[in-house]
């Protein structure tokens, strides 16, 4: 191989702006932006639109920074799993040191600027979220326990609470229940997917419930979390953020979600394989609508309340 071809290979693999952006896990960021936005608008304190925009932006940047730190630490397991092998570090586009530097810089930036733009309760919650996702989940418990999904879900559940705190400067029953909504939704959502998609976490030695405790136990876990989720989701209707639209949405969707979870718990692997995991697939699809509709309904009720529709 000549010097020229060696150089051209190196140039082809050179990171572009999009590769650095990919470190921030843009797909996860959309959920962060949406739920933080709902938390901010559902709060009983009005925020200037530009401050609100900046708050959501800083929460998203903080979430993205924790994604970069996760990719920095997990680059060894990302490289052996098909789903993650094309991420910027295993693909050789970005070095681990670069990801660490970007993650730490953006984390500090997001926390400090959220504090300056809104208040230090929101900034403290954002700092805790980043710490929880990177240290507690990624570094400590992800590779240790099959309950890793539950712990990871907690990190993803903080944004509406941070959005609420950005407006009010406090933590309330309503904001804690909004946290619980995403926190308890994550396990059934992810485990349903794990039942019908064969994942290669084994190669990466990450313990997954389907492997460590079996698929029968996973089905039971889905049901238990769905029952808990229904209680908290309907309970949220009776707090400050609840309204008629949210109550109807929660009642209908939780009834459907519970029905799906019972169906999954009653099935065995032979039945599921016979119909290509039909019930598991439709439960997973419903879970996507479930979270979007719940937060969407909170947003609609907040809008109608501000417009004075309910008097």
């Amino acid at each position: 191989m000549s010097d020229a071809s060696l150089h051209s290979d190196a140039y082809e693999n050179e990171a572009q702006f999009g590769d650095y952006f990919a470190l921030l896990k843009p797909r996860v960021m959309t959920l962060v932006v949406f739920t933080a936005f709902v938390g901010l608008l559902a709060a009983p304190v009005a925020v200037h639109p530009f401050v609100g925009f900046c708050a959501v932006l800083f929460i998203a940047v903080g979430g993205g920074a924790s994604g970069a730190l996760n990719m920095w630490y997990d680059s060894d397991i990302d490289a052996v799993m098909k789903r993650t092998a094309r991420r910027p570090i295993p693909a050789g586009k970005v070095t681990r040191d670069e990801a660490l530097a970007i993650g730490l810089t953006l984390s500090t930036f997001a926390v400090v600027f959220l504090g300056l733009a809104t208040n230090w309760v929101a900034a403290g919650l954002l700092a805790f979220t980043i710490f929880f996702y990177v240290v507690i989940y990624t570094m400590w418990l992800k590779r240790l326990t099959p309950q890793n999904i539950v712990i990871g879900g907690a990190a993803g559940a903080f944004p509406p609470m941070i959005g609420w705190a950005a407006a009010t400067g406090d933590i309330s029953t309503a904001s804690v229940l909004m946290f619980c909504l995403t926190f308890l939704w994550t396990p059934p959502h992810f485990w349903a997917l794990a039942l019908f998609v064969r994942m290669d976490y084994d190669n990466a030695t990450v313990p997954m419930l389907t492997v460590t405790h079996g698929r029968r136990a996973t089905r039971r876990h889905i049901l238990v979390y769905t029952v808990l989720l229904a209680a908290f989701a309907i309970g949220l209707a009776f707090t400050q953020v609840g309204g008629p639209i949210y109550l109807v949405t929660a009642l209908v969707l939780n009834a459907l979600f519970l029905k799906g979870a019972v169906q999954i718990a009653r099935r065995d692997e032979d039945t599921a394989e016979a119909d290509s995991y039909k019930a598991e697939r439709s439960f997973f699809k419903l879970s996507l609508l479930y979270l979007f509709a719940h937060f969407g309904a909170i947003l609609v009720d907040a809008g109608l309340d501000r417009a004075g529709v309910w008097g």
Partner: peptide
């Protein structure tokens, strides 16, 4: 060029945000 343009736009956005806030 692409990378530098991206960084330039991020920095410009940062200035706008500080000014607006």
């Amino acid at each position: 060029q692409g990378r530098n343009t991206g960084v330039g736009l991020v920095l410009a956005a940062f200035v706008v945000i500080i000014l607006g806030l």
